[in-house]
Structure formats: C-alpha cells, structure tokens
Design a protein around this nucleic acid. Structure first.
Length: 642
DNA sequence: AGACTGCG
DNA sequence: CGCAGTCT
C-alpha cells in the first residue's frame, strides 16, 4: 500500500500495464511505473479502465494522461490483459507440493554448518548466518521478511498466538513438533511418524499451539500419559544424540568389497548368459521367468510357480531353490541375486551417505512403527545382513573410532519371555526361570521327552512354532513354515496348545478383548487399534486377529527396550560416562554403543544392569520370575561384536 | 508380525 | 505399485 498507493489485489493490473522484467512480463511498452500507478489509482482494474476509456476518454486527459498514453492504451488492450493473466498467481493450479515440516533453520546445527562453511571458505555467508541465528527473534523475523521479499503483515501479528509471535512463519519448534508427533502416534499408532500436516488434520485446526494442546489433552484422556512421560519423552534426546553422533564407516573397506563383489557379479552375468544362450535383464523377474520356463523349457513347478496375478512366472528364491537340481543356471541366478541385493542396497549406497568425516547419520524414528518399535531409514541400519557369509562381511565396514570399541547388548528371546509374562503360562515360565534354552524346553514338553533327548529336528520344529506364537500364526501358516502335511501340522499345533494352555488361553483372551474393544494394549498400556477385527471379509478379519495377538507381544518388547535406553542413559550420566559412551544403533532387541576402551568393563556392567532391571525399575514395579537375560559382546567393528 | 529399499 | 529381499 505504502509503496504503490493501491491495494495488493491490483498488483496484477499494475504489472499488466508496466510489465515485470523479472517475471518476463512485457506489459505495455512506453508505460512505466508512474503512469501505471496513476491509471490504476484512478480507474481500478485493467478491465474497468478499458470500459471507461471506451465510454469517456476525456476522463483520462483529466487525470493527466497525454494523448500518447491514451493512444498506447487503445492499441495494446490485448497485450495488457494478457500480461495481467501472466502476473496473476494462479490459485487453482494442481499443486502437490507441501511446505516441509521443518525449515532449514529450525533444526540447523550451527556447529556443523560452521565446519562445512569453513571448509568451503564461505566466510561472509557464515557471518550473515551467525547474525541470523544470534539475533533476537524479532531480528530473525526482519531478516526473513527481507529474504522473502515481503514485509511481515501487521494483521498477522494481531491474530498470532503466543507461540507464533516468536515465529514469523507459523513454524513450531522442532522439539515441540516432535513431542506432539509422538503423542499423536500414541493416541493412534496407525499414524506413524505424523508430520505437521497430520497433526493439524487430526486436531482439525490450523494453529499449531492449539493442536498441541488438544493432542496432549487427549493423550491424558486416553490414559497414555504414562507411556508418553515415562517411556517416550525421556529418550527423545538420546535418539537425537544417536542420530547426531552417527556411526563410523570404513569407506575403503566398502570400496574394496564393492570391487570384489562387482567382479564376481560380472562373472555370474556372463555365466548366466552363456547357459541361457541369450542376454537378458537378470534383474527383471518377468524376463527371467520367460527365459527359464519359456525359452529354456525348465519344468514349471506346479504349485505356486505358475503364472501369478500379472501373468508372470514367479521366480522367487523359494521356487528357484526347488529347481536347483534341474539346471545349473539356477545356482548362478541365486548367487547373482544375492550379490545384486547386497551391492545395490548396502555396499554401493552406504559409503555415499556418510559425510567427509566418514560418519553415517541414519534416521531412527521413535514413532516409525504401529507397534511401538523404532524404524530406521536413510539408510535402514536395522536390516544389515547377517545370515549369509557374503552379507555378513558388510558389517565389518561399520567400525569404532580409534581408542573405542563397538559393544552390542541384546535381549535374549525377549518376545517369548514377554509371551510367558503376559500369559503367565506355568511351563513356559518354568523354562525361562530355570534358564533353559526355550526351543529345547518347548520341544521337550511338546514331544514328551526329556530335554537331553530332544534332537535337532524336534528343536527346529519347536523353534518354528515359537515364532508362530509371536506372530499369531494359524495352522496353515504353521504347515507352510514347518513343511510336511496339514495333519502333522494340526497335530503339532494342538499338542503345543495342550501343553502350553496358558498361552492358548491368553491368545484367546486377547482376541476376545480385541473384538470387544477394537484394540489391544501392551504391558505398559501402549495401544493399537484393529478396525477390521469385526470385518466380514475373512482375509481382513484373520489379518486383524494375527496383528491383534502380535501387537501386545512386539509392543511390550518395544516398551522394555525403550525403557532400557532411558535407564542406561540415566545410569551412564550418573557415572559421568556420557562423553565416553554413545548409543549408535537400536535394532529392536539390541543396543549398540561406541565405547571408550578405558571404560569397557564398567560400561558393560552398567548397561547390562540397566537392561535387565527394566521391569522392576519401571513405574509398574513389575515383579516376575522370568529374568530378562542380556548378552553382550565387543569388537573393533560391527561384524565382530557377537 | 513389524519395518525399509531397489527394481521394473 | 507390487514384488522381492534384508533384518528382528
């Protein structure tokens, strides 16, 4: 208003006449800032102006327009209108871009920026940046307005809530945002890692502070405030520190590994082409299926290897493994698949993601799953290979700093212990209480033989069903995992639940309460909802039943390890060790720390104790005959820790 | 059961 | 977007 002398709404009209070189809008050649302003203030929009010009042009002479200007206007009506449409900001365009939930300056780490700027010798930029961060909030606002090219509007300040007063862009502080993100996720864990949008949507408001207050109030109403204040909130800073600290990568090691595996991959590729007698994209399951079962005429496994939903042959590992005897190409393909996976998912991407200091800062999302578990991304450090030798070698590339070791602490069989606790099953409790191997113990009961008479196959079967229990598996899924016939599986299943009737009753109880309440709870009260539990569609109902029985188990285990993170941090702090011990990974039942070698034994004791004592120490003061056993191991790299 | 990533 | 494959 002050600058132009007319309302902002008329800006497109202004630009339509005068043009705007920065936006490549022509306007009418010969009309400048002054004339345009006169025209707009006297006659309004371009459309209105032309109406008046056609009716009584003498008005224009009266307003002080020269005959030259009037002539220009008459000759350039079309150009003016076109320029105006260009200048208009289209509000109806399909935009799927949303403002990022955090701005660069909200979670900026001045230290990190400083080192980076120093490296690139961005001296003046750094001074400006320092000023920006150092100044009062008010000054920030001005600096930002300057950058954005539009003055902060007074009307906004009047409307603003206290929280927004400090912040010109409506942006909440990152910490409060994270708090409410976790709170909302506790209320409804299906909304994992809620963003600002999700938070505002849930609260049905457009003001952050209002949403914050609403969600924290609701948290309390839902009796989730203990889970929040005792489990989640106390580890927020530990998680942030874990991400900030990162993990050291041996880039050279990765480079060597990459070269070695790529060489092998090339050899395999050549072999496969040779055997197949044709070059094709081995990464394409479609082409692979056509080559194997079409061109090469390999027997199509009658079961599931027929045409899938999309009309393609299935070429997954389990099917290829059945065909290993049929043709030598299968073995090579399996090897190719493994190497390709390792290279493309881990070996060739992880070193690129580490900084110049070779530290990798993956994300650990405290509220990234529906059950209470963490998730990890960019990259996912919770699924580093371990099963195969070729895969395991990747772990050697994650190393400890000089003078340090990597120490891993893992809960042994935590989920089955949770099953035993939640169900109170006598026999399962007994096995754990006596410190016996759970698979041997279960096999002993199910097969009715003493523990020392349990053979490999019996233990294997017990292990399968133990996993099945955790996942809420039914008979058919059990048979699939067990191999053998339906009848065998059914018999085994019945036998198991006869022996462990406490587990059976518990599972039934969870299902019933899920049906009634549409939700289940962990030992600590973390909740998950199952809207499909009453569905008439069998697939959905069955799925809901499985997830409903799994959630309290997986979720309680998650509660326990989160508390362990908290207590370990508290105890290390008390011992004054926080500068010599840093949490670097959380892998569901395992915590990995980088530890200064001078305090290895002390730290081992402290962390183990904290982990084992979680239940009694928690606000539940939970007493149980089932010990939480923790195993630990140290090494120079992640491959060595176990 | 719960995740994440790469590929076509 | 679905599949495949890695982990707990």
């Amino acid at each position: 208003m002050a600058r132009f002398g007319f309302k902002p709404a008329l800006l497109p009209d202004y630009k339509g006449l005068r043009g705007d070189t920065s936006d490549n809008i022509k306007g009418i050649k010969g009309i400048g800032e002054k004339t345009a302003t006169i025209l707009i203030t006297n006659f309004g929009t371009i459309e209105e102006m032309y109406k008046k010009l056609k009716k009584n042009p003498e008005l224009f002479t009266a307003a002080g327009c020269s005959p030259r200007i009037i002539e220009l206007l008459k000759n350039n009506e079309e150009e003016a209108l076109f320029s105006k449409t260009l200048a208009k900001i289209r509000l109806d365009a399909p935009v799927d871009f949303v403002l990022p939930e955090k701005t660069f300056w909200e979670n900026a780490d001045l230290k990190k920026i400083e080192t980076m700027f120093a490296k690139f010798e961005f001296r003046s930029l750094f001074i400006r940046l320092k000023n920006f961060f150092g100044k009062s909030e008010k000054a920030n606002e001005e600096e930002f307005s300057r950058v954005l090219g539009s003055p902060a509007q007074d009307s906004f300040r009047e409307r603003a809530q206290p929280d927004q007063l400090k912040n010109p862009l409506h942006l909440p502080s990152p910490i409060k945002l994270q708090e409410v993100s976790i709170a909302l996720w506790l209320i409804n864990s299906d909304i994992s890692y809620p963003k600002l949008d999700d938070i505002l949507l849930f609260a049905q408001v457009d003001n952050f502070q209002t949403a914050y207050d609403y969600i924290l109030k609701k948290l309390k109403e839902d009796n989730l405030d203990k889970v929040y204040s005792e489990i989640e909130k106390p580890i927020m800073h530990v998680v942030r520190e874990m991400e900030d600290y990162g993990i050291l990568i041996d880039k050279k090691y990765f480079k060597n590994l990459s070269e070695e595996y790529h060489e092998e991959l090339d050899k395999l590729t050549a072999k496969i082409y040779k055997i197949a007698g044709i070059e094709f994209n081995i990464n394409s399951p479609k082409q692979m299926g056509e080559v194997l079962f079409g061109k090469m005429g390999i027997r199509v496994p009658s079961k599931s290897a027929k045409k899938g939903a999309s009309g393609n042959f299935s070429t997954k590992v389990s099917i290829l493994e059945d065909l290993e005897e049929e043709n030598p190409i299968i073995k090579e393909i399996l090897a190719y698949r493994e190497l390709q996976k390792l290279l493309s998912t881990y070996i060739d991407v992880i070193p690129k993601m580490a900084g110049t200091d070779s530290r990798l800062h993956a994300k650990f999302l405290q509220n990234g799953s529906t059950t209470g578990r963490f998730s990890s991304q960019d990259p996912n450090l919770q699924n580093l290979p371990i099963k195969t030798e070729l895969g395991k070698r990747i772990r050697n590339g994650f190393i400890a700093q000089k003078g340090h070791k990597l120490c891993a602490f893992d809960y042994s069989q935590i989920e089955l212990r949770v099953v035993a606790m939640l169900s109170g099953d006598k026999k399962m409790t007994q096995i754990f209480h006596e410190g016996k191997d759970i698979h041997l113990g279960v096999a002993s009961f199910v097969f009715g033989v003493p523990i020392d008479k349990v053979d490999k196959e019996m233990r294997r079967k017990a292990k399968v069903i133990n996993f099945g229990i955790i996942y809420g598996m039914g008979v058919s899924a059990l048979r699939k995992n067990l191999g053998g016939t339906r009848e065998e599986a059914q018999k085994f299943y019945d036998n198991y639940f006869n022996q462990f009737s406490g587990v059976r009753d518990y599972m039934e109880k969870v299902k019933v309460s899920a049906l009634k309440n549409s939700c289940t709870e962990t030992l600590f009260g973390r909740r998950r909802y199952f809207p499909n539990i009453n569905s008439k569609i069998p697939f959905l109902k069955n799925m809901a039943e499985r997830t409903a029985t799994n959630a309290p188990v997986q979720g309680t285990a998650a509660d326990i390890i989160k508390l362990a993170i908290r207590y370990a941090d508290e105890d290390l702090k008390k011992a004054g060790l926080l500068d010599r011990v840093h949490l670097i990974l959380q892998i569901h039942d395992e915590l990995v720390y980088e530890v200064d070698e001078s305090v290895l034994e002390k730290v081992d004791k402290i962390i183990k104790n904290a982990m084992q004592g979680v239940l009694e120490r928690s606000y539940l003061h939970y007493k149980t005959g089932i010990p939480l056993e923790v195993h630990s191991g140290c090494g120079d790299n992640f491959g060595e820790v176990k």
